[in-house]
């Protein structure tokens, strides 16, 4: 997959490529417009991946922003200055029930931090559902290294 080609060569027809390149595994991302008919199945797969990631990011962003702004507004209403330190995981849920602005802000921060990881998990699910095993493997590897560095960082 790391074969270097002469950059002067323009588009190579897919059927002329050696099997080892696995063009099917390497579809490109595409925007909605201007789809060439012969590429359709791959483009649809790419578009699906883009849509999954896009909707995950949008949901993550909107939720984060709403929770953060809510917490921010509450802390202004209650005249409570922003905390120096974030509270632990266990204190957030009870704090939310009490309507503690601090807990809303901490939850917002955690949601924000979790969004990129959710994006990777979303891609993983999408690759599995498309039976794209090469990328399922690569994405799992990324998650594994992330988990490993998180464990090492804790200790």
């Amino acid at each position: 997959m790391n074969e270097e080609k002469n950059p002067g060569i323009p588009a190579i027809p897919e059927e002329d490529l050696p099997d080892s390149i696995h063009i099917r595994d390497f579809p490109a991302e595409l925007a909605t417009a201007g789809i060439e008919p012969e590429e359709e199945p791959e483009i649809l797969a790419r578009r699906d991946l883009n849509q999954v990631i896009h909707s995950m990011l949008t949901v993550g962003l909107v939720t984060t922003t709403v929770v953060l702004l809510l917490g921010f507004a509450l802390s202004i209403i209650y005249r409570q200055p922003l905390a120096e330190k974030a509270s632990g995981f266990s204190e957030i849920l009870p704090g939310l029930r009490r309507g503690d602005p601090e807990s809303f802000l901490d939850l917002g921060l955690l949601l924000l931090i979790a969004t990129p990881i959710l994006r990777v998990i979303g891609s993983l699910i999408e690759f599995i559902s498309k039976r794209n095993w090469r990328y399922t493997y690569i994405t799992s590897l990324v998650l594994l290294v992330l988990a490993l560095s998180m464990m090492l960082g804790k200790g």
Binding site: M1, E3, E4, K5, P7, A11, I12, L17, I21, P27
Partner: peptide, 8 residues
């Protein structure tokens, strides 16, 4: 240009 690897 297209290279055949990860074209997009």
């Amino acid at each position: 240009v297209r290279t055949g690897a990860l074209d997009t």
